[in-house]
Amino acid sequence: MRVLFAIFLLVSSIYAVENIGTSTYIGTSSVNNSATEYNSFDEEFSVKNTEEEIDPLSGYNRLMTEFNDVFYIYLLNPTAKGYSCVAPKEARLAISNFFENLFFPIRLINNLLQFKFQNSLEETERFVINSTIGILGFMDVAKDQYNINPHNEDFGQTLGYYGVGSGFHVVLPFLGPSNLRDMVGIFGDSWANPISYIDSRSANLLDSDEESIYATSFHVINKASLHLNEYENIKKDAVDLYPFLKNFYESRREKLIKE
């Protein structure tokens, strides 16, 4: 499976390189001679990232968007809803805090890689405070008492920080919208993620892939239970779901990388 994925990545990155030549032209065509109000708006709202215009996988992406939509509406959401009836919100927030505290290595490494030393320090402070006074991270004492806020960074953002373009858009099964850069990022993150199980890694918190899948699923369901109805609600705004989610994801990632 991993080999297959690697081949896919390789092939798609070759495709991306081939397309760079053509993509550079897109931006210039919108330059107009008259500087009226609309034209300035057109320019402001033109798709800044030319890579967004290239969508070689659009057919597959549309299909996968449908698949994820069904998965979300008929499986994840009902599960999260049922779970939220059983577990009170305080408990779910505490569990969410616990997982976020565990993901500390991902945030630390990526803050460091982006030379955000102040943030790295604060992240470390948070981890130390929350793991101890916050009882294994179930309570976010660092934020509530000491006003130290988290600084989320992942490998996809780090790659973006170093100028790696997003590459074309790929919708992943279950995970949803992504792109070439962030797919590479997901590999990096899973390596630094304490609840993933990787054979070649010297230290593993969990004992097997199976345990890792359970832990991750629990985290996902718990997280979904804190964001119930949000997806359905946002989805209602879509005239066309695939470009809607694609734009949403790419703009959001761009913003996160800039921060």
């Binding site: 066309d240 470009p243 734009n247």
Partner: peptide, 22 residues
């Protein structure tokens, strides 16, 4: 007001892309 950004996502841009594709 001509646009609102929510979480870094421009609402009008989102519609613009959908309309163009549609």
């Amino acid at each position: 007001i001509y646009d609102v950004d929510v979480l870094g996502v421009s609402i009008i841009q989102t519609y613009k892309i959908q309309f163009a594709e549609f």
